[in-house]
Structure formats: C-alpha cells, structure tokens
Simulated assay, not measured.
Amino acid sequence: MSKKFASEDGSFKRQVSSFRETISSTHPIYKPEKGRYWLYVSLACPWAHRTLITRVLKGLTSVIGISVVHWHMDEKGWRFLPYNESNKTDGKESYKPSAGLKCEKDLCVSADVDNHSIKYGIDGTIDHNYHFQRISELYFKSEPEYAARFTVPVLWDLKTQTIVNNESSEIIRIFNSGVFNEVADSHPDIDLVPKELESQIDEINSWVYDSINNGVYKTGFAEKQDIYEKEVLNVFKHLDKVEGILKKRYETLKSTHSSEEEIVKKLYLLGDQLTEADLRLYPTIVRFDPVYVQHFKTNLNTIRSGYPYIHLWLRNLYWNYEAFQETTNFNHIKWHYTRSHTKINPLSITPLGPSPNILPL
C-alpha cells in the first residue's frame, strides 16, 4: 500500500467530518436512551481516543457500547476482526495498555506481530451489531452515496441505523453535556466544559488542534522539505506555549501547596480542574515520544527530555486517572502508525523504544 496523504502542494489537508447531528431530549430523532448508541473507534487514533476517555469519565461504559477496529489500516481502510459465534461479545470489553504484548523488562518485543493477526480483544473486536468486515460498510449503510474517507470515531444510532456524528470534538461535547446522566453507570461530578471556562477552553482548543493535534500530521505527511520544516517548527513553538502555561500554573500551585503530590494532582491547563482542553491535548502528547518523534520526524526534542512541565502534566493524567490509562493502548498506537503508513515507513519496522513508553510519576 502506498496511500497519498498530502495534496499537490505537498502539504497535509485533513478531511472535514460530514455527519454532525447531536443527541438531546428535545431532538426530533436522536434522544438519550441507554443501549441505543454505539461508538466505533480505533485505539490508535488520537481523535477516537478523546471519545473513549470521555465515555469513561462520564460513566457511560454500560450506556454506549464500543467496537474497535484492527490496529492495521490497509488500502481499504479500517477493518474489524471476523465474526463467529465463539467470539460474540457485548461490546463492553476493557482495553488495557499492555494487553497481549510480550515484554522483556521494559522493552516490548514486536517481532511476532502480524498485520493480519486475529487476536480477539487484543488486535481489535468484531463489529458487534452487523458483523461487518469494514468501517466503510457502516458508512454505506448510513449513506449509500457516501464518497469521502471512512474515518473514526463514529457515533452510531442503533434505532435508526444511521451515523449520528463522526466529528470527535462534537461527540465529546455530547457525552459531556449531561444528556445521559439519568442512565449513566454513575454520576461523576465532572464537567469538562464548565460555563465559566468555556471561552478559555475554546481558545486553547483552537490553537492546540491546528498546531499540535493536527500539527504533527501536517509535519509527518509533508512531502516537501520546506513544508516539513515550517510545520515542525510550528509544532514546537506551540509546545513551548503549553510548557509556559503549565510552568506558570505549577509555580502558582507551589506558592499555596507544600506537597509535590498535591501540586501534581492539580496541574491542569486551566485552573485546578480537569477540562476538555486537557483531554484534547493528551492523545497527542501521549503518542509524541513513542511514535511522533521518529515516525513523523517531530524530533527537535522529546516530551520527557525537553518539556518537564508537560511531562509532569502527562504523567498526572495517565497515572492518576483510570480513564486515561485504560484507554491508552501503546500496542495499537505503535503498530498502527509504523505498519500502516508504508510510504513513511516502507519496511514496517516498529522501533522498540522509548523505554518505557511512559515514565512513572
């Protein structure tokens, strides 16, 4: 496979999502119900990762089921594992970050990984609802004339058998809105977009998305040297900006807290609470050292070596929040990028490092 990601001028252009409905008690079609909606994701995809984290944080793991595509994306796009009666499950699988990977000390051995391997609950899942082989079939079921790329995440309505939304930023807002509170597993006292911080969250999200979340892709898929250099410098310029925000926040906390542990647990981008701004930045940062540094050539520095406050913030989220740790699957992340983008990595060799994928607090 040699898939073209860049446009004619050598720069990467991301596709705009086309399904943009919401769910609410006042919506004429999409009303909140337990078991009605389904989330289709890749554990490798940072955009899908946002939705998985929010699903856990908001207590929706028994409300909204999930199906996970195989980590390897071929020329036909994302695929599911083949269905048979013996692997029938309810879509409530729990994905742990090291599941199925052999490790010697802290070096993960990937020599026996096969792009076509079928290990249920490790390489992915079946499509629990229609037993489709491909995400593309889901798109065609919803819209027979669909002609764009088949992306994840997909928020699906089992009642109308259509895609509700395939824009991750809107899906996480739906999950956070409280629309499912009455049927949620629990009632976590967490609002990722509190009204008093909404404008600040939107402002941070705008440049984090363009220059960091999407910036690493614009860097990695650039097909001309001058475009690559412009984009990689922009990524690090904005990582420096994040570092400055977190450093200032750390110093403020240090003046009011004597314990380092207390400081770390309140180290967020806005105030002393977790917000959507943290959640949207995390999937890129947790992939940065394990993948982007070598695969997308964002190698002017690493998070662990060059950004002490971002590194502390990252480890706070990973080690202190189950929602972040249990949805971060380094296997899928490393295997997907290094073995699906054959134009970037034609031999599909997956680096062993960094070691470990994430450092302890």
Rank of each mutant, 00 (worst) to 15 (best):
R149W: 06
D127L: 10
G353W: 01
I263W: 04
L279T: 03
I53P: 00
S340R: 03
T125K: 05
K141V: 06
P46W: 00
L274V: 04
D189A: 15
T162S: 07
R134L: 03
Y307H: 07
S177I: 05
T160Q: 14
E326P: 07
R14Q: 11
L233E: 15
D123S: 07
P346Q: 06
H187E: 08
N214I: 11
Q161M: 11
V264E: 14
R287E: 06
R36F: 07
K343L: 11
V68C: 14
S86P: 09
T327S: 12
T26A: 13
K224E: 09
E170Q: 14
D127P: 13
K31D: 09
L267E: 01
W335T: 03
V152H: 02
S186E: 12
S206E: 13
S186Q: 12
D74L: 02
D157Q: 01
R315C: 02
V293S: 00
V193R: 09
T302E: 05
Y130R: 08
I118F: 12
I64A: 09
F330E: 01
N166K: 03
D112C: 15
K119W: 15
E231G: 01
Y130A: 06
A277T: 07
Q161T: 07
D191C: 15
E231N: 13
E198N: 10
L60E: 10
G271H: 10
H72A: 05
K141M: 09
V264C: 12
N129A: 09
A44E: 00
H238C: 13
V109C: 12
S340N: 00
D123K: 04
L253K: 02
Y250H: 15
E251L: 11
R55I: 05
S168W: 01
